[in-house]
Design a protein around this nucleic acid. Sequence first.
DNA 1: GGTAATAGTTACCTTAGATAACTATATATT
DNA 2: AATATATAGTTATCTAAGGTAACTATTACC
Lengths: 143, 143
Amino acid sequence: MEGFFQNYLRLYRSLITSLNELMSIYQLSYSLWQVIFYIKNYGPSTLVDISNYYNVEKPTITRRVHRLEELQFVVQIPGKDRREKIIQLTELGEQIYKECRTKITNLETNVMEGLSKEEQIITYQTLPKIQNNIMKREDSKSE
Amino acid sequence: MEGFFQNYLRLYRSLITSLNELMSIYQLSYSLWQVIFYIKNYGPSTLVDISNYYNVEKPTITRRVHRLEELQFVVQIPGKDRREKIIQLTELGEQIYKECRTKITNLETNVMEGLSKEEQIITYQTLPKIQNNIMKREDSKSE
DNA sequence: GGTAATAGTTACCTTAGATAACTATATATT
DNA sequence: AATATATAGTTATCTAAGGTAACTATTACC
């Protein structure tokens, strides 16, 4: 699959630009959206959960969460393990999620135009598999 | 295809990290590699060509090219249009391309493990189609 | 009960990219 | 031909996003 990474990376800027534009009215960027998305889909979580999921360092997520707190889209409540803080969506956060979700799903649909259902599904399923393979490689390296 | 962008974006950090690590011995990063890759595959080109291809602003490419000149992987020669500078690979650049190409192709193969040939090909072909759709949207907006 | 590990934070640094304003050349308009 | 407009590329300055290292507080492990 020579050239796959190129095809993947070439898309990046275009996509980020479109997404950021779409969400700018909510003062969100794709990076903040990732946090909201994670919490919505995996339930209230810790910073470390999110950091692992996206393969991003902890301080990066700290910053994203603080920004989301300022915007009042999330709150942090102490976990039973007193080191942990559980991040969860506020009412406002839920609402913003729904609004953004609709817009993003629209964009996703537009962007898939001209692709067969099969192509869409396979691509959708393939990306996480690739992700897993990369994660496995990284794990095996640090052992 | 709700959630497609998430699947796409989640991969990003893992992939960039792996690629940068792989190329660090050549003092390259994925962003410099993109320029080398473009020139190798589309022939000697201008800054604007590259900038359009990756949907990135001109000054960003100016910097990448200057860095590659320092590393002596590319040279710029005046075009017949005297505004243009044609960027092309040096001997050293060609050599580095080959070495990196091998390593990256290896990584690409590893990362595709467990995926059928069909899944690989479809995903490979789908990404540029999505890219086209996004570009079309952006064009139609600015009209 | 003392040592390891884990969750989260802070301060500081790097990378990558954007915008605006500019120069120099080329193209189009009249 | 003279002027206006467009294009290629650069420079300076700013912002977004993320990383590293060092730290605190708490928990888990022997």
